[in-house]
């Protein structure tokens, strides 16, 4: 079996008395989409934040690309190859769509201490950014101010920015939310092809998308992983049905 690119090792995180992560051990393997599902407040976003470096686990470790990154900050983890999208989109709202993506290309390039030549006329950066916008279907909106985008479009923009980083793994927190049926379907198709470039840890409430995409699914309830397996295994799992899927089954 191939080595996982990302691995959490018994991560535990409390917010006061709230158990947000309880002994969570997960793996993300090359080429896969690993979906993380669970009811509201289960601790999915908290787990993503710990992997991305916004939160430090109370206990446990995080391995990425062969090294222990538990003590690294978000910047170092992004540079190490973690590309991330947020549940509540986090963009430079005054910038245009294109500027946000060029920022991503700049992050990947790293040459930020350049003061004289205009960034938006930097052919390499702009070409990279436009290619990413094209892939997520936002190229026609490149001159729109980000604040004027719909919530769904902001999600897509975050995916485009993450693409420019050419990461070794993607962390996506509910990228389908707010997209509508057509948009969800298109993004599902896109993520399906994206896994060949880098594996995706996908938090998603849209079960159609999850079951269509996921190679493996982990179910999180009250901070605890109650099951991990293929889509078929998860569907058949009785604990999962009562704890979570039971709601709509």
């Amino acid at each position: 079996m191939t080595e996982p690119i990302l691995r959490t090792e018994s991560i535990t995180k409390y917010f006061g008395a709230v158990k947000a992560s309880q002994d969570v051990s997960l793996e993300l393997r090359p080429g896969e989409i690993h979906a993380l599902i669970g009811p509201n407040g289960a601790g999915k976003s908290t787990l993503i934040k710990q992997i991305a470096g916004n939160l430090t686990p109370d206990a446990g470790r995080i391995w990425f690309d062969g090294r222990d990154v538990t003590r690294l900050g978000t910047v170092a983890r992004a540079r190490a190859g973690l590309g991330r999208t947020f549940q509540i989109s986090s963009l430079a709202m005054e910038y245009t769509v294109l500027q946000n993506v060029v920022l991503g290309a700049l992050g990947r390039d790293g040459g930020v201490m350049r003061f004289l030549l205009p960034a938006m006329k930097d052919k390499a950066l702009v070409a990279e950014a436009e290619a990413a916008l094209d892939r997520v279907g936002l190229i026609d909106l490149k001159s729109t101010r980000t604040a004027d985008l719909s919530h769904g479009q902001r999600r897509q923009l975050e995916v485009a920015v993450a693409l420019t980083l050419r990461p070794k793994a993607f962390l996506m927190d509910e990228p389908m939310a707010g997209l509508g049926a057509g948009g969800s379907k298109r993004l599902t198709g896109f993520l399906d092809t994206l896994r060949a470039e880098a594996p995706i840890l996908l938090v998603e409430h849209d079960m159609d998308a999850v079951f269509a995409l996921a190679d493996r699914i982990s179910v999180l309830v009250y901070g605890e992983v109650i099951a991990t397996g293929t889509a078929a295994e998860i569907r058949a799992n009785r604990d999962v049905r009562t704890a979570y899927l039971g709601e709509d089954a």
Binding site: A52, N54, G73, T74, V75, A78, R79, R84, F86, S90, L91, A92, M93, E94, Y95, Q99, N100, V102, L103, G104, L106, G107, R108, G110, G111, V112, M113, R114, F115, L116, L117, P118, A119, M120, D122, L125, V161, T164, L165
Partner: peptide, 23 residues
């Protein structure tokens, strides 16, 4: 208008965004 200015303006608006792209 420079690369530096693009990053600086982004840092003014949303420092989390800048960190997420590894700057």
């Amino acid at each position: 208008r420079s690369r530096f200015g693009l990053a600086l303006g982004a840092a003014r608006q949303n420092s989390e965004r800048v960190q997420t792209v590894g700057l």
